[in-house]
Structures are given as C-alpha cells and as structure tokens.
Deep mutational scan, measured.
Amino acid sequence: LHIEINVNGLRIELHNVSEELAERIREILEKVDDREEARRLAEELIK
C-alpha cells in the first residue's frame, strides 16, 4: 500500500503501511508546529 500524506506543507510518502498507521502518523505530525521537526519525527516513525 502506498499512501501520501500532507502535513503543514510537508509531503510524506509511506510505503507498505496500513491506512490506520498512516492516519496515526498524520495525526501525530499535525501536532508538531516546526516543519523540520515534523520531518525528523516522520523519519523516526517509519523506520
């Protein structure tokens, strides 16, 4: 499954994740104000 999410102008592509996991990642990242911090957090979440 390939999912693309957009959060605060940051486009993140997720591969091989469930829709539920992608939604949780999006919800978490929406709470982060700083774009660079959101990017770093996204990288950690999808490892």
Rank of each mutant, 00 (worst) to 15 (best):
L1C: 06
L1G: 12
L1W: 10
L1M: 14
L1F: 11
L1D: 10
L1R: 04
H2E: 08
H2G: 09
H2L: 11
H2K: 11
H2R: 09
H2I: 15
H2P: 09
H2V: 15
H2T: 15
I3Q: 06
I3S: 05
I3R: 03
I3M: 12
I3Y: 10
E4I: 15
E4Y: 07
E4D: 07
E4Q: 12
E4T: 15
I5C: 04
I5S: 02
I5G: 02
I5P: 01
N6W: 10
N6L: 13
N6M: 12
N6I: 14
V7T: 06
V7A: 07
V7S: 07
V7P: 02
V7K: 04
V7H: 07
V7Y: 06
N8H: 11
N8E: 05
N8Q: 06
N8R: 03
N8T: 04
N8F: 01
N8W: 01
G9I: 01
G9T: 03
G9L: 01
G9R: 00
G9Q: 01
G9D: 04
G9A: 02
G9N: 03
G9P: 02
L10G: 03
L10M: 13
L10R: 00
L10K: 02
L10W: 13
R11M: 13
R11C: 04
R11Y: 13
R11V: 15
R11S: 13
R11H: 15
I12L: 13
I12G: 01
I12N: 01
I12Y: 12
I12R: 00
I12S: 01
E13A: 04
E13M: 09
E13L: 08
L14T: 02
L14M: 11
L14I: 09
L14W: 07
L14Q: 01
L14H: 01
L14F: 10
L14P: 01
L14E: 00
H15G: 06
H15F: 13
H15R: 04
H15I: 12
H15N: 11
H15S: 10
N16Y: 08
N16I: 05
N16F: 10
N16M: 08
N16H: 08
V17F: 09
V17A: 11
V17L: 11
V17D: 02
V17W: 08
V17Q: 04
V17S: 03
V17K: 02
S18M: 04
S18F: 04
S18Q: 05
S18K: 05
S18C: 03
E19A: 15
E19T: 12
E19N: 12
E19G: 09
E19L: 15
E19D: 10
E19F: 14
E19I: 15
E20F: 08
E20C: 03
E20R: 05
E20P: 03
E20S: 10
E20W: 12
E20Q: 10
E20L: 07
L21C: 03
L21Y: 06
L21R: 02
L21P: 00
L21T: 10
A22E: 03
A22T: 04
A22V: 15
A22N: 02
A22P: 01
E23H: 10
E23M: 12
E23P: 00
E23I: 11
E23G: 07
E23C: 07
E23W: 10
R24F: 07
R24Q: 14
R24G: 05
R24Y: 09
R24H: 09
I25Q: 00
I25P: 00
I25C: 00
I25D: 00
I25R: 00
R26F: 07
R26L: 10
R26S: 04
R26N: 04
R26I: 12
R26W: 09
R26H: 05
E27A: 11
E27M: 08
E27V: 08
E27R: 08
I28A: 11
I28N: 01
I28Q: 05
I28M: 11
I28R: 04
I28V: 09
I28H: 03
L29D: 00
L29V: 05
L29K: 00
L29A: 03
L29M: 10
L29H: 01
L29G: 00
E30D: 09
E30A: 10
E30F: 10
E30N: 13
E30P: 00
E30Q: 12
E30L: 13
E30S: 13
E30C: 07
E30T: 12
K31E: 12
K31F: 11
K31A: 13
K31Q: 13
K31S: 14
K31H: 13
K31D: 09
K31M: 12
V32K: 02
V32Q: 06
V32A: 09
V32I: 14
V32T: 14
V32E: 07
V32D: 03
V32N: 08
D33V: 14
D33G: 13
D33A: 13
D33K: 15
D33M: 15
D33T: 15
D33E: 15
D33R: 13
D33P: 14
D33N: 14
D34P: 02
D34I: 03
D34C: 01
D34F: 03
D34Y: 02
D34E: 03
R35L: 15
R35P: 15
R35W: 11
R35S: 13
R35C: 06
R35F: 10
R35G: 10
R35D: 09
E36S: 07
E36A: 07
E36I: 06
E36N: 10
E36P: 02
E37K: 06
E37F: 05
E37M: 07
E37H: 06
A38E: 00
A38V: 09
A38P: 00
A38G: 05
A38W: 06
A38T: 03
A38L: 12
A38Y: 04
R39N: 08
R39W: 15
R39C: 06
R39G: 06
R39S: 09
R39V: 14
R40S: 07
R40I: 09
R40W: 07
R40Y: 05
L41M: 12
L41S: 01
L41R: 06
A42V: 15
A42C: 06
A42N: 00
A42I: 15
A42H: 01
A42Q: 01
E43H: 09
E43C: 07
E43K: 04
E43M: 14
E43Q: 10
E43P: 00
E44I: 10
E44H: 08
E44V: 07
E44Q: 11
E44C: 07
E44W: 11
E44D: 11
L45I: 13
L45N: 01
L45S: 02
L45Q: 03
L45D: 00
L45K: 00
L45P: 00
I46T: 06
I46Q: 04
I46L: 14
I46C: 09
I46R: 02
I46M: 11
K47E: 12
K47G: 12
K47L: 14
K47N: 14
K47I: 13
K47S: 14
